[in-house]
Write a protein that binds this DNA or RNA. Structure first.
Lengths: 140, 140
DNA sequence: TGTGACCGTAACGGATACAGTTACAAACAC
DNA sequence: GTGTTTGTAACTGTATCCGTTACGGTCACA
């Protein structure tokens, strides 16, 4: 359903940071991270940027720079990573076409769907709010 | 998050069928449905086909043909519509790139994410399983 | 038995979104 | 200064959707 794998890449990236930092690493470069994620360093930097804006990671430019977790994995809910990389957190999409004014169903469908879409979003939010990066790390 | 609006269009279509049938209509043509959804009749037929395969609607070809609900709206959970139109019911996507064999995180991330992705899917399934087409109709 | 109203489905094109890539300026350590 | 690294813009290839056209097949009805 999701058109992208940004959440998976973001969690992978954060997990790699946690894994390396637990073994004494400082800042980890996008080059190193991209080797684990198997993509281009710029793709990792785009994810890192989103995570940095959300306050999940801290970055440092220049030699010896890179990214590191801003907090302990136990204090990073996956929901925070999800929101950082998914601009539109809504899981379901409405029909973009304007309603047909002469049809009551067409006029009312968006409002009638809203509680359902909201409930789905809430369910996802609740689920991702309970799990943390540490939970993921425990399984690796 | 969703790349398409098929679920919204499908529920709209089904709601229109229910609305018209409650007022005595028989089979409703894709032409009529497309006027409510504000799209092309072929787009509606594609949705109808998916709903028909799932047993949610019945169709009839030829003159006077079209679609009608196969059951009472009260007996049509939205989950059934969702599954009918979303081939890949998974809400979140994995990183498609193959793991880096020399990185434990890369090798283990998919398995570590699986319970989370599964929990999200379950949450969505549970939410859409509780609501029915009749619930949507009641709000129109 | 013909005619017109429909569906079913294939095929194509435009729009959009992602991931990947290149390129380069700026920041920083040494 | 030199080399490493981030930050970011720009471009490309690819996939997916949605809309559209086209046309064969089905059916009701005169």
């Amino acid at each position: 359903m999701v058109a992208n794998s940004r959440f998976a890449v973001a969690v992978h990236t954060a997990a790699t940071l946690a894994y390396r930092q637990a073994r004494g690493a400082g800042y980890v470069s996008s080059e190193q991270l991209s080797a684990s994620v198997r993509t281009n360093p710029v793709v990792v930097r785009r994810i890192i940027r989103a995570l940095a804006r959300a306050g999940v990671v801290a970055t440092k430019e220049g030699k010896g720079g890179g990214a590191r977790l801003a907090r302990s994995p136990r204090r990073i809910p996956l929901l925070e990573i999800y929101r950082a990389v998914e601009d539109d957190g809504s899981v379901l999409a409405y029909n973009p076409n304007p309603p047909n004014r002469s049809c009551p169903v067409s006029c009312g469908i968006k409002g009638a769907l809203a509680p359902v879409f909201g409930a789905v979003d809430d369910a996802v939010t609740h689920t991702l709010g309970k799990a943390t990066l540490a939970d993921v790390l425990d399984r690796i």
